[in-house]
Amino acid sequence: MKPARFDYIRAETLAEAHAALAAHGGEARVLAGGQTLLPMLSMRLARPGVLVDIMRLHEIARYGIERDVIRVGAGVRQAQLQKMFELDKVQPLLAKALPWVGHAQTRARGTVCGSIAHADPSAELPLVLVALGGEVELSSARHRRKVAGEEFFTGPLSTARADDELVEAVTFPSRRPGYGYAFREFARRHGDFAIVACAAVARTDGARLAIGGVGDRPVAREFAQADRTSLTEALDAFSWELDARDDAHASAAYRRALVRQIGHAVIMEAEQCRV
């Protein structure tokens, strides 16, 4: 359980980080909080030749409200965002989901962008990004671009990021008037990976439900405003469309059952939270 050898580059500016990624590409991995990368290195699931540490870059260690979004830079740790002033008013879904990300002892180091770049199918922050319709800002020595959360995640631990690109920031839309937000997940133990995680955004004309932990990436679906019976039917259909599989933690049937139950509960809860 020790990492294989790698060179360690401590980037001091964004340009240096871009240059290091441009020079080493697929051989390099970005090191931010390290809370998912370090276990992968220790278990030798990842054997990069170079690590590019980006945590000394002041220009990306910030978060703030910009127009109608919260923009979170790559150096912002999960615990920092959790402590943002009035986060529960700025974006209630983030305030509700962050306590479920790992444990306090990993949120202290782990970054928001790192969790999104890692793209674990059961992780909470990718789910929140997809539920809210947020964006990922990628930058490299070549260019900068924005990718919608839903297009960013391409599979388990796979994203639209090119080898020389850095996830420089992510943007979460702020709370909108008349909207309600809810989050719930089911895991064997608090802080474990979710067997199923659900995030809902309720509007006057319907709701958006995003599901994590079932398919190979977080998936969102719009539900028109409906009575309980038709919502139950729509959720049942949705649960069958998700690519649920059996694994050591739960069966596909159990996951679909959780989607129906918890999905229904979060939509109802989000509806009640509308302000």
Partner: peptide, 13 residues
């Protein structure tokens, strides 16, 4: 000032 896993941190960090 924060609780953190020593095994998830490199010495050089």
């Amino acid at each position: 000032g924060m609780a953190a896993r020593a095994c998830l941190t490199l010495a050089v960090q």
